[in-house]
Each structure stands twice: as C-alpha cells, then as structure tokens.
C-alpha cells in the first residue's frame, strides 16, 4: 500500500522559479527511500510538500490518504502529528533538557504525565540516549543531538519519518551511527524518506533511490540496483 502518492505535482514559487515539474511518485508503506540530487534540484521542496511546509501549485499529494495540497493552513497540524521530521541542524530547544525536548512533542497534545514519561524513555532508549535524559543539548555531541531530534520525531509513533540531510553536519562514523538508528526505526515499520548528499551512505544502505534533476525524477532505482557512477555524478 502506498503511504505517499504524488500525482502530477508542480511547484512554482512566486518568483517564477519552477522547483518541481509534473512529478509522479509512489512510496510504499515501510519503504526506506533516499532522495538525492544536486543543489537546487528540488529535493527540499519535494519533502517540504509532504509535511506541508510548502504547498504545491498543481497536483495531488496523498499522504496516508489525505490530500495535503488541499489541507487548510489551520488544519496542517493534523498531518504533522502523523509525520516525524529531522533536520540537518537538529532544531532542539537549547534551554530545555533532552527529556524535555522529546516530551515537548507529546505534552502539547495533553497526554497524561505517566504516558509521556514512558514514551519519552522508550524513544530515548531506541536512539541509545536514555542515560543522557537530564543533559542539555549543548552538553551533547553533534551525533547525540541528532539522535535526540530523531527521538523527538518518533516519540509520537509516526508512520512516516522525513529526514532532511540528517548527517549533513556529522562525521563519517557518527553518520553511520545515525543511519543504524534510522534503519532500526525502519525495521519497526516506519516509512523513511531521507534527503542526502552523502553518496557513501546511499551506497552502503542499498535502499530505494530517487534521483532528482531540475525538478524532475531522472532515475528511480530499486533496492541496491542503482549505478554508483550516476550517484557520484550528482555530487
């Protein structure tokens, strides 16, 4: 079953720049998909449209059966609650502890304290940071901060996790750690879409790869069947 379906999606910015041209894309439930391409190819726009940070100019984007293109601004939160998002720059609250950062995503829904507590600890356990719950973000390494951001994104049990260059600021070893965490989450049934520039990661993971170029899908490789050179060309 498809969790995401792009149907003839076009995105043109007010400046006149067209970021996405008549794009069709299906992503199945439980998939792990890399979206790659050179800078300015439209990958960020593509994933932003999934969690409705951008609105398509034309076409349909079905996420879990809901057309996010038609979603009113005031109702966007409904889709956001079903999607976890992780960024390159972590986006953590510096004045809150690791625990508070993760709990934040649950408390706004009015969940009972005991439920918040068990869910937060479970998420922190999954990313291997249960022992750092009381630390503040600036006391953690980059990789650890990113793992906190991942814990926050999955604490709500989303069906879909969107990662916008999550390893962009991290060294190779830390990137591998993060990818292991993501793979673990994927195995638990969460669909993951990840935008990246990191060719090594893409090659090591052997997952589905969507290659974008000037707002169009240039190639869509099945698991482990993509050609190494093509990826390198997109660097």
């Amino acid at each position: 079953m498809d969790i995401i379906r792009f149907q003839h999606v076009k995105k043109q910015y007010k400046t006149g720049v067209t970021a996405i041209h008549d794009l069709n894309l299906n992503i199945e439930k439980g998939d792990f998909v890399f979206v790659i391409g050179s800078t300015g190819c439209g990958k960020s726009t593509l994933i932003k449209m999934i969690y409705r940070a951008e609105k398509p100019t034309n076409g349909k984007i079905l996420v879990g059966g809901i057309d996010v293109a038609k979603l009113r601004d005031s109702k966007v939160y409904k889709i956001r609650r079903k999607i976890g998002v992780v960024f390159q720059d972590f986006q953590l609250l510096s004045r809150s502890t690791v625990y508070e950062n993760v709990a934040f995503a649950l408390e706004i829904f009015g969940l009972p304290k005991s439920e918040v507590h068990s869910k937060v600890l479970k998420a922190l356990d999954l990313v291997g940071l249960k022992h750092k719950a009381k630390n503040y973000p600036n006391q953690l390494s980059g990789g650890e901060q990113q793992r906190v951001a991942i814990a926050r994104a999955i604490v709500n049990g989303p069906k879909l996790l969107i990662c916008d260059e999550p390893t962009g600021n991290l060294d190779e070893n830390t990137s591998i750690e993060i990818m292991n965490v993501l793979e673990e989450i994927n195995k638990l049934g969460t669909t993951i879409i990840m935008v990246t520039h990191d060719t090594d990661i893409v090659n090591r993971m052997k997952k589905r790869v969507v290659l974008l170029d000037s707002g169009r899908i240039l190639k869509d490789y099945e698991k482990g069947t993509y050609k190494h050179e093509t990826i390198q060309n997109t660097k």
Binding site: Y51, Y77, R80, R81, I83, Q91, L92, I108, F109
Partner: peptide, 9 residues
C-alpha cells in the same frame, strides 16, 4: 519547532 511537531495554532 512547536509547529513542526504538530502543535495546532
């Protein structure tokens, strides 16, 4: 961040 994690207005 609040908006991102699905807080309504």
């Amino acid at each position: 961040i609040m908006r991102l994690v699905g807080a309504s207005n």
